[in-house]
């Protein structure tokens, strides 16, 4: 029965280009480690998969018009839950990361109750503030969390290829789930709320309910990403709550293409690649005030890039790729006819 469904689904969607791109990118991500098999590249690829999960969770929330500025809180809650469960109760991390996701979703539900009534910038502040509060609580209850000094987390699966394929599997599952959520009635409601909350309310959408749904789903995925991240780094401390971690998924989604499925994927690939490969040229750059300017130049460039994308490419890099694709296709058709 189930296989029949899949077969009919494949038959149905066989013609669409979207489907081919989807299959091609999955195949590509499956075989790429064989071409880039050095340990740094595998690490970078794993990070890309991890951040795809994290950025997609942020993006899903933004699709419902809620821009969180404190998603690191949920990343950290997921990470700490899973790591502490493994440390204290010997819960296997593969279960722990899901428990972390659930706890993160439960807390997301509570915060969401406050946030659904708020406008965009209030919400940004409350979420930002929540990340600060969580960081403080984790530092305060150091006897229980060991957050201030940090601790070594249990291994999930061996780092390298196994971890990459696990992260890839979870990333693909998340992306597919989000795709179906966005296609469902719920996704339609999210988009309606994003465009105009008042009008959405007027046509009978229970906006508070759907915004809360978005919050719970998004924080679950963020918590899951946090668990993975903690077991990937094999280390966790309170610095996981840093605002930089909150802004990362935002930048990835906006640069890739806000509110699209592929946006966070493209964004995390671009940003992780920049973060991982550009430091190689740092040593050729001069120093100012005794420090290497490379990292600062990179962040400066990132800031300029972000502002430029928002102003000139409001739909992100993915819209540019789409335009190029359309252009090529129309050229091809002209040649044929």
């Amino acid at each position: 029965m189930f296989t029949k469904d899949i077969v009919s689904w494949i038959k149905q969607s066989r013609k669409s280009t979207k489907f081919y791109i989807f299959v091609a990118s999955i195949l590509f991500s499956l075989i790429i480690p064989f071409f880039l098999s050095d340990s740094l590249s595998i690490r970078v690829l794993t990070l890309m998969a991890l951040f795809t999960i994290y950025a997609s969770s942020w993006n899903l929330l933004a699709t419902s018009g809620q821009g969180s500025l404190g998603h690191a809180a949920f990343l950290g809650i997921g990470g700490f839950t899973s790591s502490l469960l493994a440390l204290n109760l010997d819960v296997p991390p593969i279960i722990g990361i899901f428990i972390g996701g659930l706890l993160s979703a439960a807390i997301g539900f509570l915060i969401g109750l406050t946030c659904v009534r708020l406008k965009a910038w209030f919400l940004g502040m409350v979420t930002f503030g929540f990340a600060v509060i969580t960081e403080t609580l984790v530092s305060h209850f150091d006897d229980f969390t060991y957050g201030v000094m940090g601790f070594r987390t249990a291994p999930l699966v061996p780092l390298g290829l196994p971890f990459y394929y696990l992260a890839l599997f979870l990333a693909i599952s998340c992306v597919i789930s989000i795709y179906y959520i966005m296609k469902s009635k719920m996704g339609l409601a999210f988009r309606a709320i994003h465009q105009n909350e008042l009008e959405a309310k007027m046509i009978g959408i229970n906006t508070a309910k759907y915004k809360l749904y978005a919050f719970v789903i998004s924080t679950f995925i963020a918590g899951l990403a946090g668990g993975l991240y903690a077991h990937f780094l094999r280390y966790i401390r309170v610095s996981i709550f840093t605002p930089a971690n909150s802004f990362e998924p935002l930048m990835m989604s906006v640069i890739g293409g806000l509110g699209t499925i592929e946006g966070p994927i493209i964004g995390s690939i671009i940003l992780v690649a920049i973060d991982s490969y550009l430091p190689n040229i740092d040593k050729f750059l001069p120093t100012i005030h005794g420090t290497f300017i490379g990292p600062y130049l990179r962040l400066l460039g990132l800031g300029i890039f972000l502002v430029m994308v928002v102003i000139f490419l409001p739909k992100g890099v993915s819209s540019l790729l789409r335009k190029i694709y359309k252009h090529l296709r129309s050229n091809l058709k002209e040649k044929k006819s």
């Binding site: 965009a120 930048m251 800031g303 972000l306 502002v307 928002v310 102003i311």
Partner: peptide
């Protein structure tokens, strides 16, 4: 869009 202002501000913070 309202969110765009937040994104631009974050870019400006980095700059």
């Amino acid at each position: 869009e309202k969110l765009n202002e937040i994104f631009v501000s974050l870019g400006l913070i980095l700059i």
